[in-house]
Amino acid sequence: MASDAKKLQPIIVKKVKKGGHAAHGGAWKIAYADFVTAMMAFFLLMWLLGSTTEGDKKGIAEFFSAPMKVAMAGGSGTGASNSILPGGGADLTQMVGQARQGDSKELAQKKKEQEAIRAEAAKQDAKKMAPLSAKISGIISNNPRLAEFSSQIRLQTTPDGLQIQIVDDQKRPMFDTGSAVVKPYMRDILREIGTALSGVENKISLDGHTDRAPYGSGERGYSNWELSADRANASRRELVAAGMPDDKVARVVGLASSILLEPDQPLSPVNRRISIIVMTREAEERLLGTGRTPVSSLSNTDAGETATR
């Protein structure tokens, strides 16, 4: 029976028809393009690594080793500029600043130019101050009326310019006690100085000083501060009356007894004085910030000693 069943089993014949390949689409082209791009980027990276110095490699490595350091610790970083990497210039190990390679040379050149301008301005001022000092000395010595007061007129060249101090004398006070009215001889001195300064381009600073004797109503009322300022301003009016342009005055200050000429003798008459400073252009820039010449800061002591009581 078993052999009969095998004989009756149908025989199935499978026929495979061979034909052309079916269409695959263009996905492989995209994959191949990505592969080629990756290979180009790889070879470009290898070329850059081969041509980069050890210092540059170190700078790049330090940046990427702690990219959140600036954000966590504070300070300026990549987000504060248009540049991806901080620093710049020829050395990538420098992590501060955002400078082009040529910036340091430009800054050095500008600094050199500013120093040259400053030196030239100082030279021109020195040429003016010496003749001006001699001119004022000549005016005083050649005028018989002023010559007798020459001991009260002191000329000195300072870093800020020519300082002309008119100091008080117990026998010949410049002002009455507690008054800002100019005495006649003081008026003559100021007007001669004003005439001499009328042709000078430099700005003028006027400071008023008193001795340490307390005045009148004391600290809460009219004091040595107001008195020294009023005397300095009265001196300014006399200089202007002599022909000196009013716009030449850069500052009128009352300093009371804050800067004594003789600290060991705070009540000495010489502490009562008017100080006129013909300022250099450098001192003028320090005081006014006019931008004429680059300068450093101005000290209070050099600013001038002035006042009278």
Rank of each mutant, 00 (worst) to 15 (best):
S235C: 09
S217I: 12
V200W: 04
R237P: 07
S179H: 13
D264K: 05
R231C: 13
T177N: 06
A213D: 13
E219K: 15
H209Q: 15
E192I: 01
D230I: 03
G216N: 13
P214W: 04
K203W: 11
T210D: 11
A196G: 06
V252G: 01
A234Y: 14
A234C: 06
D211P: 00
V181T: 09
K203H: 10
K183P: 03
T195N: 00
D168V: 05
Y215V: 15
S223I: 12
H209E: 15
S235A: 14
I259S: 10
T158C: 07
E192V: 05
P184H: 02
V200L: 03
T157G: 06
S258K: 08
S217V: 11
S228M: 07
Y185K: 07
D176Y: 06
M174H: 12
G208T: 11
K203V: 14
T195M: 01
N233A: 02
F175H: 06
S228G: 06
A256C: 10
I166P: 12
K171I: 13
K248C: 04
E201I: 07
G254K: 02
V249M: 02
D207I: 13
L227A: 07
V252L: 00
R237H: 13
E201D: 14
K183Q: 12
P263L: 13
E192P: 02
M174D: 15
V182R: 01
I189F: 04
I193H: 03
P263A: 13
L260M: 15
M174R: 07
S198G: 06
I166R: 06
